[in-house]
Write a protein that binds this DNA or RNA. Structure first.
Length: 790
RNA sequence: UGGGGCAUCGUCCAAUGGCAGGACAUCGCUCUUUGGAAGCGACGAUCAUGGUUCGAAUCCAUGUGCCCCAGCCA
């Protein structure tokens, strides 16, 4: 294999790395520890790549540690085979978790002990209602839950029952252990979640040792804490579960404790990834197996020939955010091509052969370079790889290729009726054989039914007789070339979103972290099968140049003008070559389907201005608005104040400087007030407003001071006095600052003079910063404009 | 219906009150013994309506749209 000089892939800065950076800086944790926790009940797919990459790479970048955890707490569907396949795929991607391999099931005993502790704390109880009854009692969104008749059981009774649950005295489903949290919570997750259920199932690791199994919400936080995880990353649908996570950590008093952070999922166009749909594809014979190269599994990508570096580059490219998104397939394809372009040596293969007999040619052996000039030139060490991986001087990176008077060219490279712009061979036309001189097509040989079966051509060497070759085509010598099978893979589905209601749209439908958990009660829809691409696999027979026979088995090539290929690891043999097409070359000429993606809709068409109606007020609120208006408070702020009990309680009976104070309370302090984080006294605000009104400070200074006193609680006017803040509007002083800023940014200045007037904001910001926020922004504005335009 | 999450070019991600930027895609040009690669350029967005501010993608309010939760799955 070639050693790739490719760029290191990394997670771009995001909201999670920001949090980690803060936690590390504050010393909250000495080092970061993350984990990737797949359940071993299926194969890893492209979607998992993103989650595992985020978990592992983030830790690696912070010089932390990452764990692989098999989250095997539900025996149904889990197996050692899956557990091993997951590890295998992850190792293939290049991850190394060292000793840090965990099986959740190894800790069943410890979970049990924590459950007992919860019971002893009076925070958990054994419930004995049926599943449907429990659902009924939990209530629905608009009502509160009703306590089960068993909620009040004594600690002793709970302990006894729970022990007997474990001992196998009860039938499946007869009892459950529940947390005692809050049946009235608006967060349904908190309405006494189930912690343990009785299931008599054989566990692939624990055998029949247990007949009770812990639930995710109980087990996962514990396992994180037990492993010493610091940042537990999961996808967005677990936000509600975080409340249980925190409750458990606090109730059981773990310190230091892990925290859960959620990220948005990423799905990929043209891909289904639901486990049951994938199984349908396999069982229905639509694909050859879980590693059929068209499948979205990692095993399939691996068999297809995609390199792990490409998968990681893709994961790196799609970014992290708090929104579920569907990524353009082109991003994935680009990652695959980008990885292969500098790493796959070029050779020649003809996929759909057309025989050509050459005249005026003496058989010879050519020496052809494996790499085009641009790859050679881009090489950092000046060397390029041989197929075996050895890096050599460019002139040594060549292979012998025989050329005799019979050869094959691509059937598509000859046309009797060439379309406009056709740059290949036509009757009487001249074309260049890649690396082997020019030929002219003289005669067409037809078969019985009139089809073209061959050509007769003249080899011209470099002497075209003044004719300009139409283009360059690839070829394989018929005498020495090796017969091969080519498997031309394409996307499995015809539409971007085979499982959503709008097939042409994109819709996420997988959890990037967990191999499969759909509603088992719903029948799997087979609707998506309608969108199978009938041309997702095309098999042809053709020829490849003999040199490949000497190369190591796993060599990836670019078959020039065709795409990237490698021998199928399962089916290819030295005497019966089978090549998989990993991906085509980009083709800007054919521009077949992508052009008719048809999703460009002018935005203006859908954007109809909507009017936001004023909220309706209760009589009390109206009265409050009237009172505030009388104090001079602006309408908008009065309404907000009147409707928000926290804000109005804070504002209270303020009358002096009421309009300004109200504006600050609403616009600046609102969020902090509601979060209960404000130490600043409302009584201290009018004094600050006085300073503003008298022109001693600017509103910018006022705002800065406000944020500072928000936390410290120090009176803002006091801060102003202590720090000697005052608005700088002295023209001379400001002009000096402006001159300094302009001198420091000559490039920007030139751009501004060149017409980029938007830069005015940039300069204003710089001047404000240079003055420590004390410059009078209005004065700066006029002065700056005068200077810039002079 | 209750709670929660989210909203920036066609797509994905940035901009942490001061230049709306990058990548992919698309289109054009240059170069090319791959209709590849590379280089250059173009196109193209802050969900809406108000408010605060000298200045808002960012702060405040209201509205709209999408997603998640009411498994003894994870």
């Amino acid at each position: 294999m070639t050693s790739s000089p490719s760029v290191p892939v990394s997670v771009a800065p995001n909201f999670i790395t920001e949090i980690i950076g803060r936690d590390l800086a504050s010393g909250k944790y000495p080092r970061v520890v993350t984990r990737f926790p797949p359940e071993p009940n299926g194969y890893l797919h492209l979607g998992h790549t993103f989650a595992s990459f985020l978990d592992f790479q983030t830790a690696a970048q912070f010089d932390g540690r990452y764990h692989l955890r098999l989250d095997d707490t539900n025996p149904a569907g889990e197996s050692q085979e899956f557990a091993e396949a997951i590890q295998d795929d992850l190792r293939w991607l290049g991850w190394d978790w060292g000793e840090k391999l965990y099986y959740a099931s190894d800790n069943f005993e410890r979970y049990y002990a924590y459950a007992v502790k919860l019971i002893e704390l009076g925070k958990a109880y054994v419930d004995s209602v049926s599943g449907s009854e429990m659902a009924r009692l939990r209530g629905s969104a608009f009502g509160v839950g009703t306590p089960s008749p068993y909620r009040g059981r004594s600690v002793a009774e709970n302990l006894d029952l729970f022990a007997r649950m474990r001992a196998g005295e009860f039938a499946d489903g007869a009892h459950v252990l529940r947390a005692k949290i809050d049946l009235a919570s608006t967060n349904m997750k908190l309405r006494d979640p189930v912690l343990y259920r009785i299931v008599r199932a054989h566990h692939y690791r624990q055998g029949d040792g247990w007949c009770i199994y812990p639930m995710y919400d109980f087990q996962h936080p514990l396992q994180d804490a037990l492993e010493g995880v610091t940042h537990s990353l999961c996808s967005l649908e677990f936000v509600d579960n975080r409340a249980i996570y925190d409750w458990l950590m606090e109730t059981l008093a773990f310190a230091p404790r892990p925290h859960q952070y959620e990220f948005g999922r990423r799905s990929l166009e043209y891909t289904v990834v639901s486990k049951r749909k994938l199984r349908r594809l396999v069982q229905g014979g639509h694909v050859s197996g879980w590693d059929d190269p068209r499948m979205p599994t990692l095993r399939a990508a691996r068999r297809l020939g995609v390199r792990p570096q490409a998968i990681k580059a893709f994961a790196s490219a799609i970014g992290v955010s708090r929104t579920n998104r569907t990524v353009d397939l082109a991003v994935y394809e680009n990652a695959v091509r980008d990885d292969l372009n500098p790493t796959a040596p070029r050779v020649l293969a003809v996929i759909e052969p057309l025989a050509v007999t050459l005249s005026h040619l003496e058989t010879r052996t050519l020496s052809l370079p494996y790499w085009p000039d641009d790859v050679v030139q881009a090489s950092p060490d000046g060397l390029v790889a041989l197929p075996g991986g050895e890096r050599v001087k460019p002139e040594a990176a060549v292979r012998p290729v025989a050329l005799s008077n019979t050869l094959y060219i691509e059937r598509q490279d000859f046309s009797l009726t060439p379309p406009k712009g056709f740059k290949r061979l036509t009757l009487g036309g001249v074309v260049r054989l890649r690396g082997a001189g020019l030929i002219r097509a003289d005669e067409v040989i037809y078969g019985e039914s009139g089809e073209v079966t061959g050509l007769k051509a003249t080899w011209l060497g470099e002497d075209s007789g003044g004719l300009k070759p139409a283009g360059v085509i690839h070829w394989v010598d018929a005498q020495s070339g090796l017969s091969a099978e080519f498997r031309l893979y394409d996307r499995l589905f015809r539409v971007p979103n085979p499982e959503g209601p709008n097939h042409d749209d994109s819709l996420p439908d997988f959890d990037p972290e967990q191999p499969g958990h759909e509603d088992a009660a719903q029948p799997a829809s087979s609707d998506f099968l309608r969108f199978l691409n009938p041309e997702s696999l095309k098999v042809t027979r053709g020829f490849v140049e003999r040199s490949v026979a000497a190369d190591p088995p796993g060599t990836r090539y670019q078959f020039e003008r065709q795409g990237y290929f490698w021998p199928d690891p399962e089916d290819s043999r030295s005497d019966a070559l089978v090549f998989n097409r990993i991906i085509t070359l980009r083709d800007t000429w054919g521009k077949s389907e992508p052009a008719l993606k048809g999703k460009t809709e002018p935005k203006s068409a859908r954007a109809e201005p909507q009017k936001a109606e004023a909220p309706s007020l209760t009589p009390t609120q109206s009265a409050e608005v009237t009172r505030l208006r009388a104090l001079g408070v602006a309408e908008a702020e009065a309404v907000v104040l009147a409707r928000d009990s926290v804000l109005s309680a804070y504002f209270a009976d303020t009358t002096r400087q009421a309009p300004q104070v109200a504006a600050w309370v609403v616009n600046e302090l609102g969020a902090a007030l509601r979060a209960g984080e404000v130490r600043l006294q409302v009584n201290d605000l009018p004094a600050l407003a006085d300073l503003l009104a008298s022109g001693q400070i600017s509103s910018r200074i006022a705002k800065d001071v406000l944020t500072e006193s928000l936390e410290s609680g120090e009176a803002p006017a006091g801060i102003v006095a202590r720090r000697g803040l005052k608005v700088v509007s002295d023209t001379g002083e400001l002009a000096a600052i402006i001159d300094r800023v302009l001198a420091a940014n000559p490039g920007k200045l030139a751009e501004y003079k060149g017409g980029r007037t938007g830069l005015l904001g940039f300069f204003t910001g710089q001047v404000m910063r240079a003055s420590g926020g004390q410059a009078d922004p209005q004065a700066v504005g006029t002065l700056l404009k005068a200077k810039l335009d002079s």
